[in-house]
Design a protein around this nucleic acid. Sequence first.
RNA 1: GGUGAGAUACUCAAGUGGCCAACGAGGGCAGACUGUAAAUCUGCUGCGCAAGCUUCGAAGGUUCGAAUCCUUCUCUCACCA
Length: 429
Amino acid sequence: MMNFVEELRWRGLLHDIMPETEEYLLKNKTTGYIGFDPTADSLHIGSLVPIILLMHFQQAGHNPIALVGGATGMVGDPSGKSEERNLLDEETLAKNVAGVKGQLARFLNFDSTSENAAQLVNNYDWMKEISLIEFVRDIGKHITVNYMMAKDSVKKRLDSDSQTGMSFTEFTYQLFQGYDFYHLYKEKDCKLQMGGSDQWGNITTGTELIRRKSQGKAYALTCKLITKADGTKFGKTAGGNVWLDANRTSPYKYYQYWLNCSDEDAENYIKIFTFLDKQTIETLIAEHKETPHLRILQKKIGEEVTVMTHGNEAYENAIKASNILFGNSTADDLKTLDEQTFLDVFEGVPQAEIERSAIEKSLGIVAAFADYGFLKSNGEVRRALSENSISVNKEKVTEDFVITKNDLIADKFVLLQRGKKSYFLLKVV
RNA sequence: GGUGAGAUACUCAAGUGGCCAACGAGGGCAGACUGUAAAUCUGCUGCGCAAGCUUCGAAGGUUCGAAUCCUUCUCUCACCA
């Protein structure tokens, strides 16, 4: 049995741990679970840490369970929220549960022939069976309101500073999650629940319920919330969340997100998000300090995480795309690409279709940028032009530039660009 | 149910008859510098090439002129019951 807790500790993942947990895990092959909220049909990189936690857990020889909150998702976790949540309708939720399940399957080994195969459960499956009376009598009876109100997630909302109150629905949430733990404890001998540090309150309601209802002993462990040195929220970009689903966030963008993290963050992230051993990581950090401009850490993180999430091929394409977009490639380089390579590289770059005749008639630069959805208005294009931030096929152009069929790449595409990072593709049909 | 406060652009927030396409801050975008970073500096941030046009919760009204005044409505919040 590898020391799972120690592994988390040196990686800087461990936040809080219930006494005796480490000793127990060292001596016993344990079943542990983490819950995932189906708030969308894809997880985003905020969920990556709990996933990685489960992966470490499995690699250490324990049995991981990934729980999708089909039932709890209907209630809404108030933890870390200052406002009442919106409820999702059942149809959306079902779709989300399916999406999330599919993604989890990529990270964990579910092969049932394995000694410690991962399992996937949906708490809706057992929650739907319970009647209100049953719930109130069998579960509610064991936990006092006093206990529930002492939780941070509740206290904050009852505070007179709080702008909004808290509905009974959200108040009940911790009991739901607590019951999940109890259920898994009974049915699957699951003795450990893990989660983000904001889950501590919910998790301990579970261990408490297990203790009072069946005099059992269960354990808890939480990991640190990932932060960024500049104080902005991890996993968010201007374009929204960074998703694990390739259709929502292309592998290229995904790779770019990791590549763009700051030096300070990179030192933490390489420990948290990769499975490289301590020795390797220390060497990399030392190298990075020598030659920070090479961004060794960022590249390594980008590689490891992109491969883990999207596979090798997607990673290679992301690299290729990055080199073309950010390297010193010129219009001539671009034009040597064949259609397939070009498409691979620009997969995920927003695009629009354009009539061939429009190009043959010659297309003014303002119209090209504004009429096909790249920039919002003619005025914005003109503004951008005066900032000298507009390029066509990687070459800066001015307001009088006209796109003709000579500018087509592979006789089909025109690459529009605003600034360094924002691309748009016109595709001739 | 009663009383009071409020609704302004992506967010916070000023403006209380003309000088308002609307102060300021944050955010965002771009340019310079760089490592596709951080920090810094500069510019932009309703539509329009422009004349001009449409915006300040909604609809009406007063006025030469309204985000600002009046009427009705909608919504939010706080306190009391």
